[in-house]
């Protein structure tokens, strides 16, 4: 007798758990032949709100971890991703990629995790500074994570765009609420399973699937989101974000092109979601030889 295949149910990822959408709504993304790929959760504003609450709760302890420890955990993500490579390749092929292209995309995603794992304890040295001032002060500027970052992932690819937007944000000590690509969401939830098994504390990354059009307002209107990364293609949505961000003056950053190239990685992506804090520390002398620090 022929075996009946068990199809996977894709759920959303909030606070380290995999709940179904509270709204009970689903949608079916299609492949190029017009066949349904899977049933995905059509997340609601309430799911988004729950995700923000989870992200806020996780932010404190995540930002207080040592930079080195964050690096270790990001490296662990790369390890777990490597172990489930074939699953990701399979999903990418299902969603319309050729096998070689899919393999290349997964390889690049793994390498990108390692890349940002390495930057965790180094970006601070690169971007912070000791500043010359005209008084007896030791004046220095250092970076601090912004808080909860909303991420709207690129809509044109399934995995690499997601990894390239999430990793620099959490490498810098932020937590995030991510909306995956609407029509290519399979890898996002499988990536959530990778995150759930790689020492990343629950709530640091929360991943929703659903409609960008429906949720875009939730991203700019929520007072507890400190910044939004928009990597989608819709100019109208980008403008809406900019206009709506005035409620708590959140930072809006836009990346275009899907972040698919090997060169789409840089510590500046980490820097985009950092605040600069400058400290004036009184000292006796300013000059090098006689200074007291």
């Amino acid at each position: 007798m022929e075996r009946l295949e068990i199809l996977k149910t894709y759920k959303i990822f909030i606070g380290g758990q995999f709940p179904r959408t509270e709204s009970g709504r689903y949608y079916s993304p299609m492949n190029k032949k017009g066949e349904a790929l899977a049933n995905m959760c059509l997340s609601s504003k309430k799911d988004h709100r729950n995700a923000v609450v989870a992200a806020r709760k996780a932010f404190g302890s995540w930002s207080e971890r040592t930079a080195f420890n964050r690096g270790q955990i990001l490296y662990r993500i790369a390890e777990m991703l490597e172990g489930r490579k074939s699953q990701f390749v399979e999903e990418l092929v299902k969603q319309g990629a050729t096998a070689p292209k899919a393999t290349a995309e997964v390889d690049l995603a793994i390498d990108r995790c390692v890349y940002y794992a390495g930057w965790c304890d180094k970006y601070q040295q690169v971007f912070s500074s000791v500043n010359p001032v005209a008084s007896s002060h030791f004046n220095f500027s250092a970076l601090e994570p912004m808080g909860v970052v909303g991420i709207i992932a690129p809509q044109t690819n399934s995995l690499i765009g997601l990894v390239s937007t999430i990793l620099p944000v959490i490498a810098g000590g932020n937590s995030c609420v991510v909306l995956a690509a609407e029509q290519l969401p399979l890898c996002a939830i499988t990536f959530a399973e990778v995150l759930a098994t790689s020492d990343l504390p629950g709530g640091v990354v929360n991943i929703l699937t659903g409609s960008e059009k429906e949720l875009i307002d939730a991203f700019h209107a929520h007072m507890d989101i400190n910044a939004v990364l928009y990597a989608g293609e819709n100019d109208e949505h980008a403008r809406k974000l900019e206009e709506g961000a005035d409620c708590n003056v959140k930072r809006i950053i836009r990346y275009v092109g899907g972040l698919t190239k090997t060169t789409d990685e840089s510590p500046y992506y980490i820097n985009d979601f950092q605040e600069v804090k400058t400290t004036w520390h009184p000292i006796e002398h300013v000059g090098g030889a006689t200074s007291s620090y």
Binding site: R49, R56, A218, A221, H222, M223, D224, C247, N248
Partner: peptide, 10 residues
């Protein structure tokens, strides 16, 4: 009142 979800910061 405002229609926006709030933040404890305020």
């Amino acid at each position: 009142t405002t229609g926006h979800y709030q933040s404890a910061d305020y």
